[in-house]
Amino acid sequence: MTPDSSLSELVTPAQRHRVLALTPLAHLRECWARLDITVSHRCVRGPDIGMAMVRGRMGGSGNAFNLGEMTLTRVSVALDDGTSSGGTLGHGWIAGRDREHAELIAVIDACAREARWSRQIDEALIAPLTQRLAAEHDAQSQQAAATRVDFFTLVRGE
C-alpha cells in the first residue's frame, strides 16, 4: 500500500493522536527521528501523571457506570519560535506513566499543526504507523482466529 496523497487533508489531530498513542515509544521515537524535523520546545503544562476514570455501559449499551481508574500522563508543549508569547501548542495524553511518550506525542502534535510540516508528518509518519498498527491488529486477530471452534456433526445411524 502506498500512502494516499489525499490523506493529509483527512487526518485530524484526534486521529493523529490515536495512532501516536497506540504506537510503542521506541518505535515512535525511531520513526520520528527519520523525519529529521528539529525543533525546540518547552513544556507549558506537565508532564503530569494522574488518572482517568474509565466508564463502561450496563449490558454494553445502556447507562454509563464507573468501572475504575487508569493511570494517565498529560503534557502540553509550545514550540519555540523566537517570540516571547510562544509558538504552536501541542498536547499529548497517554495511558500509563510514560512522560517521554506523552511529551513526544505533544511535540509531534504541535509540529503537525504547523502548515510547513503537517503534510510530511501525515504522509511519512502517521500513514506508515497506521499501516503498522493495522498489520499488528491483523496478526493478533489471526492468532485469535486459530482458536475459533469449527463444529462438526457426527452422523449416527442411517
Binding site: G50, M51, A52, M53, R55, G56, T71, H137, Q143, A144
Partner: peptide, 23 residues
C-alpha cells in the same frame, strides 16, 4: 497509591462491541 494521583479526565464509556476480540 491511587489516592496520591489527581483525576485528569473521565473516559467516554467503553465500546465493548468494538473490542479487538482475543476470546
Amino acid at each position: 497509591y491511587r489516592t496520591t494521583l489527581p483525576r485528569l479526565a473521565d473516559s467516554v464509556p467503553l465500546r465493548t462491541a468494538d473490542m479487538r476480540v482475543e476470546r
